[in-house]
Design a protein around this nucleic acid. Structure first.
Lengths: 216, 216
DNA sequence: CTCATTCGGGAACGGTGTTCGCGAACACCG
DNA sequence: CGGTGTTCGCGAACACCGTTCCCGAATGAG
């Protein structure tokens, strides 16, 4: 054990006292809690309380908190409704659009996707679909797998900065200070040039990146 | 306060007992500790012990642990040695190449860059340089700023997965299982097709993404 | 009914970030 | 020199945290 992911350490069954809950129930409770109060609130004690049980009991279903986080991520990935076959670019864009939607619905997701890229059953299904969308594409396997990774990471990173208004405010505060200090001419020109900075749209950005990666 | 970043909450001075340490010293101790034992080891108590002092003392230099993490990130960004003026693509590639090198030297950096994108003085200098490199480029300001964000996020994400061998192993273990189960034809074809999957190189990937984003 | 086996979970261990408050150390002022 | 205002250092405490131990309870099999 150690190099073996959560999903392979399934519950054996048969003899003994039957469990009162399931891994899915624990995962759902954790997701509900994270949706309501953020990732930081997902502690073993809080999740257990959500289920009306004790913290130690959770370790019957999960080896560690990190395992639970992986389960949460993969569980959400079950909600992808994959697009019908068609040209690859619109197909991948739709996947990204849905990913962004999932992350907006679960504001804790981007952080998990970025810091622990764990492929569970649903994540694997998604990868399979992406490979199917790219089936006719001439790029080699390595590049396709990389496109998948870049898609996910970029969607998460862009959605995260989109959601984290606190960070944007602090950033703005410091940039304003830097401009006022006067030692950053290009930055000053960029930030004071006429209208408020036009923000590129998510789909446009992802689209350009994908085209750059996989060709027209 | 709250929307005001660490760097603007500078130490006022003059009267009173002089401080025995400096913010820079605290930051350096935290970086040394993180380099040696990882980000998880950077607790207020451990950093304080590194300096031979008590945990509570650190709060004279920093408002919270998160502030300290931001200081660490920005401090490392001081090490960029910016390329001489020239065509924009090689210039940006050099910036990314150096970013990757910094992240390999400080394995805790990618996580911080991905989850808390805080621009401090050195990060702002870097942004200024990137804007200078792009000074002659016809793209509008929004797209240039976005290119900066994408560059950073992608460099961090790629370097992180490069460094995190544990995750790659677990991933491999589960993918092997999925292939064995037989319900993922494209995935199976991709993973069993001839030689080991050819991994695209970092600079090539970043280059394609930048060209997609900013044009040839 | 016995028994191996599993589950539930209170209690405890060794951590964590942060706050409180007090004594000490200094710069300035009279 | 003696206050005095102000800051610094930091032990102690608070409210948590993840995880492990261990024992009693529950169960299905024989």
């Amino acid at each position: 054990m150690g190099a073996v992911p959560v999903w392979l350490r399934e519950r054996r069954s048969g003899v003994g006292r039957p469990a009162e809950r399931s891994r899915a129930e624990v995962t759902a409770a954790a997701i509900a809690l994270a949706d309501r109060e953020g990732l930081a609130a997902v502690s073993m004690r809080r999740v257990a309380a959500e289920l009306g049980t004790g913290a130690a009991s959770l370790y019957r279903y999960v080896d560690s908190r990190d395992d639970l986080l992986d389960l949460m991520t993969d569980e959400v990935a079950a909600a992808y409704e994959l697009p019908p076959p068609g040209p690859w670019l619109p197909g991948l864009l739709e996947v990204c659009r849905q990913g962004r939607e999932l992350m907006r619905r679960h504001a804790w997701l981007p952080e998990l996707v970025l810091t622990r890229s764990a492929l569970g059953p649903h994540g694997t299904d998604l990868l399979e679909q992406v490979l199917e969308i790219l089936a006719g594409h001439p790029a080699d396997v390595g590049r396709k797998l990389e496109a998948f990774a870049v898609m996910n990471a970029l969607t998460a990173a862009l959605t995260l900065s989109e959601l984290d208004v606190g960070a944007r405010q602090r950033q703005g505060a410091y940039l304003a200070h830097a401009v006022a200090a006067g030692r950053h001419p290009h930055l000053t020109a960029a930030l004071t040039g006429g209208s408020p900075v036009p923000a590129p749209h998510f789909e446009d950005t992802i689209s350009r990146v994908l085209v750059g990666l996989l060709g027209e």
